[in-house]
Nucleic acid binder design. Structure first.
Ligand code: MN
Ligand code: MN
Ligand code: ZN
Ligand code: ZN
Lengths: 153, 153
DNA sequence: TGATAAATAGGAGTAGCTACTATATAGGTG
DNA sequence: CACCTATATAGTAGCTACTCCTATTTATCA
């Protein structure tokens, strides 16, 4: 085991939580046990979970939490910039607390969402016909297909 | 009125219908009045309609058609390549029979989907980590924000 | 240590599909 | 051209993923 890496990972986690708490305070949002638990569950997941998936995790520590609270809270996180809704159509909304520049590949069969990073996609230049006319809040490259597991029938 | 343009438009429409009929025959799909009416409604629309929107249009000529048939049929069109589902999350699936290279801007407030075309986006080169590992069936630039009507509060 | 505005739990309501089954029909066959 | 049959459709029931409502609880502040 690499103790250094473990420690850094733990530190990163602590830093993210602190950052999240500060962000809530800045925006005048109360730091509730529900919000903390939901944020921790989201940060600890790399599968871009749906509200339902987060709900199942969080019920471990907060057995009486409601699915509505999880849904509402995840949307609040997107509004304050602590997370975002992953692009892509069909099925349940999927969330991501990974704010580093990256892109997604979505498998249309198993619905897995896989992170990748290709620098040329980090800052896409839009034509003036769009940039000048509309207020663009998000732009990314959208990629879907079959993952390596689903290709083999 | 420009008669030449009208005539060309009419010809284009006829050609598209013929093309669609041929495509159905190639794939061994029956050319039913429902399929024709749904395809015509989709081709005549530039608003990237949902199944519900197509349903309302088609009921004019086929009053007993069911919403399920419209839904199923639009998905069939995507499978045979006569149309596709527009990328983007939230709300109802939106369909497009415009097969020319183009991209979309989606307004997150009024849900309008606006076509644009920027040649550099037509053939996005994916990194080998994606192209080599997965079977990519679709890739495009995803752009969302507020349209000019929704910006002004 | 209250007061209070914000947040949550629980449940009902809704949109958008999706599955099921009896009926109808497109398109090939004789 | 009438018949046959696999395919497609209509009508309906069921389901998933939210979204709204209201009474109750609680984080924060004075
Ligand atoms: Mn991600
Ligand atoms: Mn389009
Ligand atoms: Zn897969
Ligand atoms: Zn708009």
């Amino acid at each position: 085991m690499n103790h250094k890496k473990d420690k850094n990972t733990a530190d990163d986690f602590g830093a993210k939580i602190q950052c999240f708490v500060d962000l809530c305070r800045d925006r005048g949002l109360r730091v509730t046990p529900q919000r903390l638990a939901i944020y921790k569950a989201l940060v600890n997941s790399d599968e871009h979970p749906s509200a339902e998936m987060v709900y199942e995790k969080v019920r471990g520590s907060l057995p009486t939490i409601s699915l509505d609270t999880v849904n509402r809270t995840l949307l609040t996180f997107s509004e304050i910039g602590a997370a975002f809704v992953v692009e892509g159509s069909g099925g349940a909304r999927r969330f991501d607390a990974g704010l580093d520049n990256h892109q997604h590949f979505k498998c249309v069969k198993c619905n897995r969402i896989i992170d990748f990073h290709h620098e040329p996609f980090d800052d896409i230049e839009l034509p003036a016909s769009i940039d000048g006319r509309f207020t663009v809040s998000r732009k990314t490259v959208y990629v879907e297909g079959l993952c390596e597991l689903c290709q083999s029938h």
